[in-house]
């Protein structure tokens, strides 16, 4: 163990274990930041570097032309780009809000009320965990179609709310919540929804923060729902709009590759913000009641 004098008269203790841990973390971080570094680098690459062969990881002469290109493409598009952004934001936020509400309520009721058929519902949930939307994509389209939802926000929102994974996640947390607290509140005369909303939910912060981050990221990046359920230009969300910038689904126009790179970089900003805001909550320790066993 080495002691180093730190500022303000504090001592910094360096132990072998700590050093190893930091080294390990740094290696991990080095790997995981690669996509971001690449993304940022690509966004600033001039045209000739974008198509360099063999491709290079780092930009040599950073330029801003990609962003000016993007502004040009965006301003000349038929649908204003703010519309795509609004679509994405509206759809994603609605899904996040509704799915958090629906899955926490559902999980809470299933775990704590144990209504008839709770076991059956859980079996279905576990089964649903394993099926991807890929298998049911065509039938789901038929359902959405027959409900008359094509080309509406509902088509993008509704199918993504009752997600098995979400309720399973909430369930795992709800099981750890002490029943005594709920009973105590009930004796005190609290209404069931009140118990859920002002007693259970606040102490489930790590659970629903995780859920928010997870749902936001997946749906923000969701490419297939808008591709399938939406045909009008104005209803598209950002991932699809990226293709518009690229020059249509037939394949990227070479001249706009830079603009796509810039747009891709900009598109990740909301997810990073969401995560940074929510991550503090994820780390909040769950409230542990003063109940003694």
């Amino acid at each position: 163990m080495i002691k180093i004098k730190w500022f303000r008269g504090q001592w910094l203790h360096i132990t072998a274990g700590k050093t190893l841990m930091y080294a390990f973390m740094l290696v991990m971080v080095a790997f995981t930041s690669l996509p971001l570094i690449f993304l940022v680098n690509t966004a600033f690459k001039p045209m000739e570097e974008l198509f360099l062969f063999p491709p290079r990881f780092f930009v040599m002469r950073p330029v801003l032309t990609n962003f000016t290109d993007l502004v040009f493409v965006v301003s000349s598009a038929a649908v204003p780009f703010t519309r795509f952004f609004f679509n994405s934001l509206f759809v994603t936020v609605s899904i996040v809000f509704l799915t958090v509400l629906v899955s926490s309520l559902g999980a809470y009721a299933l775990v704590k009320f144990k209504p008839p058929g709770a076991t059956a519902i859980f079996s279905i949930v576990i089964m649903a965990l394993m099926f991807s939307p890929h298998v049911t994509r065509i039938p789901t389209y038929m359902v959405v179609n027959s409900l008359g939802l094509i080309n509406t926000y509902w088509a993008l929102i509704l199918p993504n709310i009752a997600v098995a994974f979400n309720i399973f996640l909430m369930k795992q947390f709800m099981e750890q919540y002490p029943n005594e607290l709920i009973e105590a509140a009930r004796i005190d005369g609290a209404r069931e929804f009140k118990i859920f909303w002002s007693l259970v939910m606040p102490s489930m912060a790590p659970a629903w923060s995780t859920l928010i981050v997870f749902t936001f990221v997946t749906n923000w990046n969701d490419f297939f729902s808008p591709l399938i359920y939406v045909t009008s230009q104005a209803m598209r969300t950002l991932p699809l709009a990226l293709q518009v910038i690229g020059g249509g689904p037939a394949g990227m126009t070479v001249g706009r590759a830079g603009a796509v790179a810039a747009a891709t970089l900009l598109m990740t900003i909301p997810t990073v913000i969401t995560f940074t805001v929510m991550q503090g909550r994820v780390m909040e320790t769950m409230v542990h009641s003063g109940i003694k066993g």
């Binding site: 629906v102 899955s103 309520l105 559902g106 809470y108 009721a109 299933l110 704590k112 009320f113 144990k114 209504p115 008839p116 058929g117 709770a118 519902i121 279905i124 949930v125 649903a128 099926f131 049911t136 789901t140 359902v143 509704l158 199918p159 709310i161 009752a162 098995a164 309720i167 069931e192 859920f196």
Partner: peptide, 18 residues
């Protein structure tokens, strides 16, 4: 019943879209 009522939105969602 109350419990079922709370789970209902989820059940409907799963039934229709899954």
């Amino acid at each position: 019943l109350e419990g079922l009522f709370f789970v209902l939105p989820f059940i409907i969602g799963v039934a229709v879209f899954f």
